[in-house]
Amino acid sequence: MINIDKGDFRWSTDIQWTKNKEKIVELANGKVDDVGNSRFIGQPITAIYDYQKIGIWQADEADEAASYSRNVGEIKVADLNNDGKIDADNDRTIIGSQIPDFTAGITNRFNYKNFDFSFFIFTRVGSTIISSFHSDFNSLAGRYNNLDIDYWTPTNPTNEFPRPNVNQESPLNSSTLRYFSGTFVKVRNINLGYNVPDDLTQKMKISSLRLYLAAQQPFNFSKYRSKYKGIDNETFDSIGSAQSYATRQFIIGANVKF
């Protein structure tokens, strides 16, 4: 798509948008959910089935928490059928899947005389990822190094993460702390270039010279990074504790042709 093409100035834009729909229609034994293998009719093959965290038990909810055998500061999971207890039969549900609502990208290119400038923004929206990185580095036991996250204390009544407890190496219902939105917006690259005019290159006895600045993945926006201290949630399935770092690359270059 060309937005402007006027004299020395040209601006063009590429847009791409993708949506993938996926659901299980039928299994070997018919249109019946197979809980043991996490296969659910009407859901993607990667559906996540677990309890649903809805917050942290707060000080003024102590009695209600106790009725669920929970203490203030522990994870509050949804009692989906409201029967007054948390049980595997009735209170697990589909948390999400790896299938995003959509992915999209936009590339803009600008040319003015010998200068060119382009950038590419990419986004994925609506998937759920499993971050074992958080299971391993967010045990809230006090015995191991921990991610610097927003955890509950009597003076910080957050609903994000439970109260640290030296007597447990992972919190009750800790599996619910692994699920994060897979949504991100990334600036994949930015390029700025300058083509040295022909009369100058002829004097230098070369056929062409291009000078450029390039940035690879200079910006990476996601709640997973900013709020939950993850590294990079651009992954298909799960993020292990040995995840390699999301790199950012800046290049200053000269492209010379003889």
Binding site: S69, N167, Q168, E169, L172
Partner: peptide
């Protein structure tokens, strides 16, 4: 009873963590 370390103190304390998982 439980000493200072370990992942399974709930098996000594019989708390809600001692469940089906």
């Amino acid at each position: 009873t439980n000493g200072s370390d370990g992942s399974y103190k709930y098996m000594n304390q019989y708390t809600a963590s001692f469940g089906s998982n």
